[in-house]
């Protein structure tokens, strides 16, 4: 690179500013000074231009950049076009690679043209990553959503959803999620340790439910998406938990999967499956009930609020199922805690 005889000799400040500009170490204040000098002094501008050109020459001398691309063409010759003359049509596709082995751009190890290491520009890379990520997120959401479809669980099965610690008596009659359609006064939520004066403790947490004779619990069975469980022939529902009763004789707990056709003014229910369990007396015992929905689901009403109601038999297939637990414990009560269900689709 030549520099003419009348070349401007830079002062040390300009030399330093330009050098710091080239090395990207220039500060904001220095940039302002450099810009002003480049605006006001043509000689300074020429000096800076020479420095930029020399910097480029240094770059080319120290790290020469090979350039290469691939090109494919399809050439079609049509001897008789519409207007009678011949015509060519050409389609061309190019791939460009530029740079040294492993150098900045993309790090392609070797090019197909035999030159070492020219990286490929990958403008498509980030959009492609974005699209793949979105697709994966959509697919993940879809499968997650689908997976929730078959997951059924009791809500407030451990009865700990309500805090009775501030209740004076330690007893409540509102049992969250367990009074769907109907409620009964013989059913209590108890902080049993306090209520029993320390004689009985809950298997887990603080609260249990105490059912007097003829009292009941009802819960519409929902999956994680909030969709009710539908009656299907062969469906099985297994209920497990802990049960407690006192007295000298065993007590009985009756359970059922019911379809509530009407709650008010007339109560009409149909039972799809039923089971009962005997609760041994004294202490907490594991509770297990299994409800098997039969093949024939044409059922008469099982529970009516009045004998005068003329409710017909109906096919329960596809009807929403409610878990009902009825206490059959004359003169005494049953305590329940840690209730869980497992729903097994037909054929499993």
């Amino acid at each position: 690179m030549t520099s003419g005889p009348g070349d401007f000799l830079p002062d040390p400040e300009l030399e330093q500013l330009v050098s710091r500009f080239l090395d990207h170490t220039i500060t904001a204040e220095e940039t302002a000074v450099l810009e002003q000098r480049l605006r006001d002094q043509p000689d300074a501008r020429d000096y800076c231009a020479r420095a930029l050109r020399f910097d480029a020459t240094l770059q080319e001398a120290l790290l020469p950049q090979p350039l290469q691309w691939e090109e494919t063409r399809r050439v079609v010759f049509d001897p008789k076009r519409k207007d009678g003359g011949p015509a060519w049509s050409i389609q061309r596709q190019q791939t460009v690679r530029y740079g040294n082995p492993g150098n900045s751009l993309s790090g392609s190890p070797e090019g197909p043209l035999g030159l070492p290491g020219p990286p490929v520009r990958r403008r498509w890379l980030w959009p492609a990553i974005l699209v793949v990520s979105l697709a994966a997120a959509c697919a993940g959401s879809f499968f997650y959503y689908r997976s929730l479809e078959n997951v059924y669980a009791l809500r407030n099965g451990d009865f700990e959803a309500m805090d009775l610690s501030r209740s004076i008596s330690g007893i409540g009659h509102s049992i969250l999620y367990w009074q769907d359609n109907f409620s009964t006064s013989g059913c209590e939520l108890c902080e049993i340790g306090r209520v029993s004066g320390g004689k009985i403790f809950a298997p887990s947490g603080r609260n249990i439910v105490r059912l007097q004779d003829r009292a009941f619990l009802n819960q519409l069975i929902l999956n994680k998406r909030g969709t009710p469980l539908k009656a299907l022939p062969g469906l099985r529902v297994i209920l497990t938990g802990q049960a407690y009763s006192q007295g000298d004789v065993p007590h009985s707990l009756r359970g059922g999967l019911r379809f509530v056709a009407s709650g008010y003014p007339d109560m009409i229910q149909y039972e799809a499956a039923t089971d009962s369990a005997t609760i041994p007396s004294g202490g907490w015992h594991p509770l297990r009930m299994e409800f098997q929905v039969p093949a024939d689901l044409l059922r008469p009403p099982s529970d009516l609020s009045s004998k005068n109601i003329a409710a017909p038999s109906i096919d329960l297939s596809g009807k929403e199922l409610t878990l009902s637990l009825d206490c059959r414990s004359p003169g005494d009560s049953i305590c329940l805690d840690d209730l869980k269900i497992e729903v097994l689709p037909p054929g499993k």
Partner: peptide, 20 residues
């Protein structure tokens, strides 16, 4: 071309991309 691009841009990878 490199010298000319040097007056617009400072980082080498951008300049290499432009040269390409």
């Amino acid at each position: 071309v490199r010298a000319y691009l040097n007056s617009f841009l400072s980082d080498r990878s951008s300049i290499d991309d432009c040269i390409q």
